[in-house]
Design a protein around this nucleic acid. Structure first.
Lengths: 184, 184
DNA sequence: GTCTATATAGGGATAGAC
DNA sequence: GTCTATCCCTATATAGAC
């Protein structure tokens, strides 16, 4: 069966999200995607590294589109926060999907994802911070970081407990809770 | 140089915390601990699996002693929460040390740590829940899960941003914030 | 308890036919 | 774009001397 590079990437996402970079082997990829080694190296000549990088970039694009974009709309803060939360719910499959940023953040100095992963997190925090500041939030920087921490922790707890309710509950309460301490 | 099993474990902690299970190789262990392969297999005949399991058990013991024990004291809720927070600050090295529970939670069904890791998290949530309920908290179950989520997220964010202040700030605000909505 | 040497499997990666 | 076959390297693990 013919497979495009983009299809390949879509299949790779789940593998890397589940097993992390080191835990993902080419055999595993082959098994889970149904693609042979030759096909994989055809699409990604530089091998596993390139597969992971392409996957990370693809997911980052999705994230920008689904989560960040709502934050940068021209509506009122409440709607923007609401939009982000809906985006997050979708992007993380209601708590079932791990965050690649978290998954790729393991390892020492030699970790090749440190920089892009750090930038992505900072980007998110900054976008959220803008909305909160505009909403009249007291400590927008602190609050935005808190939100990100809660999301990340929620994903981890959901994965370990094999139960998405904590994540969903948290997400559901978010907009109200954040806007309580503002002018809106 | 002679090394006891317990010394070996103490050195292993940092390696597994940093690189995760799959990312940790025996060569890496050898390099970071200064122990040769033969010494490692002398202490842990079943190899890497046993090293990881022994490390997890050791860390879990520490966790019970430093974090859970304060929660189970016979003092008032405020002091117990305060005790937990101080314990957490120490246990996670003010945000610099990753949580083994999180680090070992990657992988699919074949992950051998799923059960112990899940139990540890449930144990923590349950202990905290008891304190919060006793303090008159409205939704002790939800709140205790939230706390755990925030801690875990805080560790992840601190690692990625390479900055522990978010973690420390969150921890500092914890007891007050939790007790706001109670009788204490 | 530690060393050196070695066995065996699986990892990532490549080549050439189709 | 995919298949089969194969190479090399590193990973885990073991054996026996000290």
């Amino acid at each position: 069966m013919q497979t495009s590079r983009d299809e390949a990437i879509r299949k790779l996402i789940k593998v890397f999200r589940t097993y992390g970079y080191e835990g993902t082997t080419l055999s595993l990829i082959s098994k889970m995607t149904g693609l042979g080694r030759a096909s994989l190296y055809h699409h990604f000549p530089k091998g596993k590294q390139e597969m992971a990088q392409a996957t990370l970039m693809h997911v980052h694009q999705q994230f920008c589109e689904i989560v960040l974009k709502p934050l940068q709309q021209e509506t009122n803060p409440r709607d923007r926060l609401q939009g982000m939360c809906e985006g997050l719910n979708q992007f993380y499959d209601r708590g079932r999907a791990a965050c690649l940023i978290a998954v790729f953040s393991l390892g020492g100095e030699e970790n090749m994802f440190r920089e892009p992963v750090k930038k992505a997190l900072q980007e998110w925090i900054a976008s959220l911070e803008n909305v909160l500041r505009e909403a009249g939030c007291d400590l927008p920087r602190e609050r935005s970081r808190e939100v990100v921490m809660q999301i990340q922790g929620g994903l981890m707890v959901a994965r370990v407990l094999d139960d998405t309710t904590p994540f969903e509950q948290m997400l559901a309460r978010f907009p109200e809770r954040l806007l309580e301490e503002t002018n809106f």
